[in-house]
C-alpha cells in the first residue's frame, strides 16, 4: 500500500470487559495531541456477552481506512492470550511487535466435550513457539503485576507501559493522558502500573514472564480408559416419578407410554451414574466396563 503516507497501525484485542477500548482511547488521544491524524475503529456488537473485542488505532499524516489491512499491524496488543493468537496473522511479518498478557480467559464453550480424558479446547500454543516467530515479542503477566499493585483491573495500563516502549511518544505525555482517562481515585495505581509495564518491556526485545508457564502444555499424563456403559432399568420397580428424566445432564432418559423410564438416547449417555444414584426406588443400575482400546 502507499509508502509515502506511512501510517502506524496498532491493533488492540481482548475479551469484553477487559478494557480494550480504554487502551485504544488513550492511544488515540495521545496521537491526536501529538498532532497526528488518527482513526480508531472498533466493533463491539456482542462484546459485553463475553465475545472477542478488537480495536484498530491508526495514525500518521493522513489516515484513510479506519481498519488495518491484514499483515500491516505494527504492534499487536493482546489483553488475553488466545485473543492475541487469533489476530497474530495480522502482524507485519518482518517488523511487527507482539505484546500479550499471559492471562487465560477460558470460555465455557471450551469445556463442552463429554469424552473421557477431554481437555479444554483452549489455544495449545506455547509462548516460546509464538515469540520465536515474531520480530519483537513480550508475553508478560500484566494481570499478575497489576494484582500485586492492588488492582488486577489495571492490567491494561501495565500493557500500555509495555506499548509505550514501542512508540515514539514522551513518557510524560503517556502519563498525562492516562491520568486524564482513568477514574480519579485510581490515578496513582495506574501510574505505577504504567511504570512497571514499561520497565519490564525495556528488559529486551523478546521476553517471556516465568509465570506465563501457566500457558505451557501441562497436560497431565492421566490415562482415562474408554468405557462401555450399560444402563439397566427395572421396569417393575420404576413408578414413573420422572426424577431421573429431569436430572440426567444429557437428557437421554424419558418416560414411555407406560410411564416407565427408558434410555431414549443411549449415544448421549456419558455413564455419569446420576440417574442410578437419584432413583428413589433403585430401579436404575449403570455399569461402566473399560474396553480394550484399538491402537490408533
Amino acid at each position: 500500500m502507499d509508502k509515502r503516507n506511512r501510517t502506524t497501525n496498532v491493533l488492540i484485542v481482548g475479551v469484553g470487559g477487559q478494557g480494550v477500548i480504554m487502551v485504544s482511547k488513550v492511544l488515540a488521544q495521545l496521537c491526536q495531541e501529538a498532532g497526528h491524524d488518527v482513526k480508531q475503529s472498533e466493533v463491539h456488537g456482542m462484546a459485553k456477552r463475553g465475545g472477542g473485542v478488537f480495536s484498530h488505532v491508526r495514525f500518521g499524516a493522513k489516515v484513510w481506512s479506519p481498519t488495518i489491512p491484514e499483515g500491516e499491524v505494527d504492534i499487536l496488543v493482546a489483553l488475553e492470550w488466545a485473543e492475541g493468537l487469533r489476530w497474530i496473522r495480522h502482524l507485519k511479518p518482518e517488523t511487527g511487535t507482539f505484546i500479550a498478557d499471559c492471562q487465560k480467559i477460558v470460555p465455557p464453550f471450551a469445556c463442552r466435550s463429554r469424552k473421557r480424558g477431554a481437555e479444554p479446547a483452549y489455544a495449545p500454543q506455547t509462548p516460546e513457539e509464538i515469540i520465536d516467530q515474531v520480530h519483537a515479542g513480550y508475553v508478560m503477566d500484566a494481570t499478575g503485576l497489576a494484582a500485586n499493585l492492588g488492582n488486577a483491573r489495571a492490567a491494561n495500563t501495565v500493557l500500555l507501559g509495555a506499548l509505550s516502549t514501542a512508540l515514539d511518544f514522551p513518557e510524560e505525555a503517556w502519563a498525562q493522558v492516562i491520568a486524564a482517562t482513568v477514574p480519579p481515585k485510581s490515578v496513582q495505581i495506574n501510574a505505577r502500573a504504567f511504570a512497571e509495564g514499561r520497565a519490564w518491556a525495556l528488559g529486551g526485545t523478546k521476553r517471556i514472564d516465568v509465570t506465563a508457564s501457566g500457558l505451557q502444555k501441562s497436560r497431565a499424563e492421566v490415562h482415562h480408559p474408554q468405557v462401555e456403559t450399560v444402563v439397566e432399568i427395572t421396569a417393575d420397580w420404576c413408578k414413573g416419578c420422572d426424577i431421573c428424566v429431569k436430572s440426567c445432564p444429557e437428557r437421554c432418559l424419558r418416560l414411555n407410554d407406560q410411564l416407565k423410564a427408558e434410555l431414549a438416547l443411549p449415544d448421549l449417555c456419558t455413564g455419569c451414574q446420576l440417574c442410578s444414584w437419584l432413583c428413589p426406588d433403585m430401579a436404575i443400575s449403570v455399569t461402566n466396563t473399560p474396553v480394550q482400546e484399538a491402537a490408533s
Binding site: G51, G71, P107, P108, F109
Partner: peptide
C-alpha cells in the same frame, strides 16, 4: 499472503452473562 501462523483460532462465541 505472507502468513507464517497457520493455526485455527479458538472459538469464543458470545454467551449469556
Amino acid at each position: 499472503h505472507a502468513a507464517p501462523f497457520e493455526f485455527a483460532p479458538m472459538v469464543r462465541p458470545p454467551v449469556l452473562c
